[in-house]
Design a protein around this nucleic acid. Structure first.
Lengths: 217, 217
DNA sequence: AGCTAACTTGTACCTTCGTACAGTACGAAC
DNA sequence: GTTCGTACTGTACGAAGGTACAAGTTAGCT
């Protein structure tokens, strides 16, 4: 039984008091440092895989002493799980922003294809480190019960988002389509991350998106 | 630069000489042991992830002394890469066998759905350890150039298999369909392995398979 | 039989890593 | 100011793991 490792103490009644000094920065005293460490952990996961995540390595990468990582994360497991959970929380929101409003999606199907294509290519290119971290999360969840709820919440978020989209497009079973569409994109991402293909966008991605998002004649 | 770790020495001119003693078993003297270790390594990957793979752990799991694992695998990396490469080589063949002949697939679409459904549920159930190892392979390939060709060969094998199938079903672009269908199955597997869903087979898998494999009215 | 190379094993050293911990600094509350 | 709790840091020790290696065994060859 893991002794429920978390950050030192929640500081029950002080959080509000800290919002005064300057405009916005200070949430809790050490929150900035903690997030820096989480980011570096994720970067490491994406770059070299979960094996590479150690207190010392993360500390070095973040330019802080070892004691700093051991203070915020009581164990290696704790570090990894917190980083992945934190990532899942923020990633969905980020994706939502990048896709932009989907409410009027039915009006411009071509634009919709472009938007999804751009998002995917971003994830395969400049943002591929984060994308890899994302699939590492799924992989880790398969043998870490603590991460299962994280994955469920993340999946549910995507499903809701896409269900709305397909409902707007007039699909008869938008929930199912959302799940299948998401699985398709995941599968494509996964293999492209492992063995990239030069004409992937033109030869595979766009045809696939068109098939799903443009009304079949 | 890694000094190209492989098994001790290829024994350039002796391999043929060994095929005599008995019916088939002896390929090279230690091949049985080596494969046992590879299997145990994969089991560990599937069960606890790549972190868990160490010389000592694998040796213990296989019931052999530490020296045995260090003899066959010069480094931890070597062990992991060899295991995943070996897995990829055999897995495709296994899947081919399990699916059975696909040549006359067009005649019995219902059967086809059943076959794929059975295969998928097997991978999600009794065989999920191996399935996890499979996706760990993809994940690892993303940051281990040595594994990229392995992944490409494995993908190509699947694509050929499925292209043949979709050609037989009369799809206009069987190559593309093969790739998309495979991606869909991969995506579904991945999320189901991380967070299983009770009515997955009836609610998602079979509808998806029907949509792809049965002729739309 | 004698030779050789593949195979096998136990041990031991050294590095890395996890983790505890004692102590310091700092901000906030009183 | 004093006090107190959070944040932070450096060090150190024990455990785990990577790897080398020497010595042993087996099987095939001449």
């Amino acid at each position: 039984m893991a002794p429920s490792p978390t950050r030192p103490r929640p500081a029950t009644a002080k959080q509000r008091a800290a919002e005064r000094k300057r405009d916005a920065p200070a949430e809790r005293r050490g929150e900035a440092r903690r997030q820096l460490l989480l980011e570096k952990t994720l970067e490491l996961v994406g770059r070299e895989g979960v094996d590479a995540v150690h207190h010392r390595r993360v500390a070095e990468l973040a330019g802080v002493p070892l004691g700093s990582t051991t203070y915020w994360f009581t164990s290696r497991d704790d570090m990894l799980v917190q980083a992945l959970a934190w990532f899942a929380e923020h990633e969905l929101e980020l994706m939502r922003d990048r896709l932009g409003p989907l409410a009027d999606a039915g009006r411009h199907p071509r634009r919709l294809v472009d938007r999804f294509a751009a998002l995917m290519m971003l994830q395969l290119g400049p943002d591929r480190i984060r994308a890899r971290a994302q699939y590492a999360l799924l992989q880790e969840a398969a043998h870490r019960p603590q991460l299962e709820p994280v994955v469920r919440a993340w999946s549910a978020g995507w499903h809701d988002l896409l269900e709305q989209l397909f409902a707007g497009l007039g699909h008869p079973d938008p929930r199912l389509d959302a799940q299948l569409f998401l699985a398709l994109l995941d599968g494509l991402m996964l293999t492209q991350l492992a063995a990239p293909d030069d004409d992937f966008e033109q030869a595979v991605l766009r045809p696939a998106l068109r098939r799903w998002l443009e009304p079949s004649a």
